[in-house]
Amino acid sequence: MSQSYLSRIGSKLFILLIFGFITLPVFMVIWISFFKNQLIVFPPKGYSTHWYMQLADQGNFAMAFFFSLEVSLLAMIISLVLGLLSSLAITHYEFRGKQTLQTFLLSPLVVPAIITGIAIYIFLFKSENWLGFNLVPSFWSLTFAHVIITLPWTVRLISAGLQGVNRSLEEAAVDLGASKLQTFWYVIMPSIRPSLVAAGIFAFIFSFNNLEISLMLVSPRQTTLPIEILNYVFWKVDPFIAAVSTVQIIVIAGLMLIADRFVGLSKVF
C-alpha cells in the first residue's frame, strides 16, 4: 500500500517537473523583464518596472509591433475568407480530385517555412524583372506569404466546423424556400461561428509569431516584431528585450483565452 502511494507521489512529481520544463523559458522571460539592472545576474539586484516605461520611447519596437499587427490582421482576414470558401466546396460538393486538392491546400504545412520564404522571395525577385515593377520587399508580398502559412489552419478548422453542421437543418431551410445564400447566412454561418473565431485567432497567432517566412521578404527599415527581437538578441539579451517579449506573451495569452472559449484547444491540434 505504501509502495503504491510512493509511486503515485513519484509520478505526480515527474509530471510536475515536466510542466516546469515546458513553461520554464516563458517564465524566465517574464521574470527577467522586472530586473532592475541591465546586466542580468542572479539573484537580481532589485526589481522595477522601468523597462516597460521605455517601451514607448523605443520607436523601432513600437513600429515593428504595429507593422506585425497590420500584416497578421490582413493575412488573417484573407485566409479566413479563402479558407471559408474552400471549406464550403470541400464539405458541400462532390468533385473529382477533391482529396488531392485538399492535401494541396494543406501542403505548406510540411515544407519548412524558411524554404517557403526563400522560394517566394526568389520567384518574386525574378518576376520583378519580367513584370517591371517592385514586388519584393513589399507589404503585399509579405502579407500573401503569411496567408500561405495560415491557410492550412483556417481550411482545417473551418472544414471541421462545417462537417459538424447538421445537414437536415440546411435541407429544411431549402425546403422552406430559402435560397443558397440565405441558407448560408442564416443556417450555416451561426453554427460555424465558434470555429470561424478559433480559425481567425490561430491564423493570427501563427502569422504573428512566425519569423522564418518573413526573413527574406521584409525591408531593412520595416520589419516584423519577431525579426526585430531576433536582431536585438544577436547583440544582447537584457531586461528590456524581455519586457518587449512579455508584451507579445500577454497579447498571445489574451487571444488564446478567447479562442479557448469558443473551441477547446485540444481539438485544434
Partner: peptide, 28 residues
C-alpha cells in the same frame, strides 16, 4: 492543456530569450 499549448503559441524567439538567460555564462 492551455499551459501545454501556450509556450508553443508564444513563438520560438521569445523562448530563446528565456533559454539564453538560463544557459549564458552569468545565467541561472
Amino acid at each position: 492543456i492551455m499551459l501545454i499549448v501556450f509556450p508553443l503559441l508564444v513563438g520560438n524567439i521569445i523562448r530563446d530569450v528565456g533559454w539564453i538567460s538560463l544557459f549564458s555564462g552569468t545565467g541561472l
